[in-house]
């Protein structure tokens, strides 16, 4: 049996700003196996980003625990977890290469090592010819690739992605999904991926976590029984359609 690389136990999160407290997560528990591709889907405002930030050690949970790789998460663990957000959050005054190098720069990795590692990753995401371009000179999809390369540069075991392709058009988005699967198959990282798109969720993942409206609970942990490597045509298959319907039903019932 594969070991659990992520283990979440009874997470509850209540944001308490000055006004009324907001309950974002409600007793969330699940596990993720080493090397799995897991997506989290759910209605807007359900607490998905909150969950990701807690996994990353960037937000404290109100109750509950997160264990990563056998250690309890109490703060950022950059050597174990890489993060990729929507809109890439690249630093606009740095080139693609410098952006990918940035996490290593923060940790005072020698320049030569840094450069070599960043170049290798840019090559993996297919951007070796764009190393010296600035973010504004890149397309949305390219920026997102740079962000993925940056998320991988510290060679973390886990990559957390919050709607990384949310701002892209459908065609680019589908291509990026295939690209990500290729990278995943090559690196065998554990990926925790948030999306609004049920199609994307099923197409990419081994397991889909379905979250309820706020306060977010895990309604279902649904394995996806589609063979790998995934191919575009599978989206039209019966199994795909059934999986889609099941998630849709869960989400809409949860709202009711």
């Amino acid at each position: 049996m594969a070991r659990h690389v992520i283990e979440v136990r009874g997470l509850t999160k209540t944001y308490s700003p000055h006004r009324a407290p907001v309950r974002a997560l409600d007793r969330v528990s699940f596990t993720v196996d080493e090397g799995q591709f897991v997506t989290l889907v759910g209605p807007s405002g359900g607490g998905k980003s909150t969950l990701l930030l807690i996994l990353a050690g960037l937000v404290e949970s109100t109750t509950g625990e997160v264990w990563v790789d056998g250690e309890q998460v109490r703060g950022p663990v950059p050597e174990k977890i890489g993060i990729v957000f929507q809109d890439a959050t690249l630093l606009p005054w740095k080139t693609a290469l410098a952006n990918v190098e940035f996490p290593l720069d923060l940790r005072h990795v020698p320049r030569g090592v840094r450069r070599e590692r960043a170049l290798a990753l840019l090559e993996m995401v297919g951007l070796q010819d764009f190393a010296d371009r600035y973010p504004h000179e890149l397309s949305g999809g390219m920026r997102q690739r740079v962000a993925i390369a940056r998320g991988l540069v510290q060679d973390p075991r886990i990559v957390l992605m919050d709607e990384p392709f949310g701002a892209l058009d459908e065609q680019t988005r589908t291509k990026m999904g295939q690209e990500l699967l290729r990278i995943w198959e090559k690196t065998r990282k554990t990926i925790f991926f948030i999306t609004h798109s049920l199609t994307e969720a099923i197409y990419l993942s081994d397991v889909v976590l379905v979250m309820s409206p706020r306060p977010g609970r895990i309604l279902d942990v649904m394995p996806v029984d589609l063979p790998r490597p995934r191919r575009f045509e599978m989206m039209g298959s019966e199994a795909f359609g059934q999986a889609r319907n099941r998630i849709w039903k869960l989400i809409t019932e949860g709202e009711g």
Binding site: P76, F85, D87, L91, F102, P103, L106, Q154
Partner: peptide, 15 residues
Amino acid sequence: LDPRFALVARGMGAT
């Protein structure tokens, strides 16, 4: 500024 800039940096291990 988008608060995610600071979050991403902290997640990367920035002090």
